[in-house]
Design a protein around this nucleic acid. Structure first.
Length: 271
DNA sequence: TTGAGATGAAGAA
DNA sequence: TCTTCCTCTCAAG
């Protein structure tokens, strides 16, 4: 489930398991053999995340940059590590643990300059203490692009994916198709602060729950949601089902190539 | 056994 | 806006 909260959890896990230690690095699959050889034996000095990007800093100033994309996953376990199962791009071992990386969109070793280039093209991350929501607002408030597309643009806001996009707009009552320039500053402030809260909760829980206490299955006397993404949500992948708040059928559309979900009742078009 | 689909994003056109 | 890449899971046949 690689939205930003997942990556921040992964950074914390790497820090806890490997921080301050020399790690063994290998590429059982072979596709990252050169990079693994470069990292092998280095000490992990700091694990960090910016948006959906995982950045592991080593003692020679090199940084491992991992982006999971849709499919990528990291699996952890205790040593001794078993024979790799499936295609493992990178295996790290250190202390008492190992970590297997599969199917990443990006896995590369960056020099300090490369890290700066990466960070410079990312928008503020609601999970980072150094985030400046004003930087995102400068982009949004000038854009004709729908706010639902802007929220998925990592150069505007770094971290939210399709689920947080759908859910935060629902919670704030904003039509995802509304052009950014027609969003009020107050609405933006609400969206940002809600993202900070929701994503921090996502890091804590390891899943995306966005449903307020008064709308949970227990409170509403309905069966818990069954969805492999694992959390309780208002609209994400609930197309055609009644809105948990107003009962209107949840709408779905493809916007900029991604599935979009919203409630026409709770998120009325401002047109 | 096969195929579609998935929480992402770069690059081509 | 479309295609491509990465991998795994689950449904359909």
């Amino acid at each position: 489930m690689p939205e930003g909260h997942t990556i921040h959890r992964l950074a914390a896990e790497h820090q806890r398991m490997f921080g301050g230690r020399a790690v063994r690095a290998s590429s059982p699959q072979g596709r990252f053999a050169e990079g693994a050889a470069r990292l092998d034996g280095r000490v992990l000095v700091g694990a960090d995340a910016h948006g959906k990007h995982l950045l592991l800093g080593f003692d020679d100033e090199s940084t491992l940059h991992v982006h999971l994309g849709i499919y990528g996953k990291v699996g952890f376990g205790g040593l001794p590590a078993p024979e790799p199962v499936g295609l493992v791009r990178l295996r790290l071992e250190g202390g008492e643990h190992f970590a297997d990386l599969r199917g990443p969109n990006r896995c590369e070793v960056l020099e300090p300059g490369g890290v700066k280039l990466l960070r410079d093209r990312l928008g503020p991350d609601p999970l980072r203490a150094d985030a400046d929501p004003e930087a995102a607002w400068r982009r949004i408030s000038r854009a004709r692009t729908p706010v639902g597309v802007l929220l998925m643009d990592q150069s505007v806001v770094a971290g939210p994916g399709n689920i947080y996009r759908a859910e935060v707009l629902f919670r704030q009552g904003v039509d995802p198709r509304l052009p950014g320039r027609r969003l009020s500053a107050e609405r933006w402030a609400g969206i940002w602060s809600d993202l900070v809260v929701l994503m921090a909760e996502g890091v804590r829980a390891g899943r995306i729950d966005t449903v307020r206490p008064e709308h949970t299955p227990e409170a509403m006397g309905r069966p818990p949601r069954v969805d492999d993404h694992g959390g309780e949500v208002y609209v994400y992948r609930r197309a055609g089902l009644p809105c948990l708040v107003c009962g209107t059928a949840v709408a779905a559309a493809v916007l900029a190539g991604r599935n979009l979900f919203w409630c026409p009742g709770c998120q009325p078009s401002a047109a």
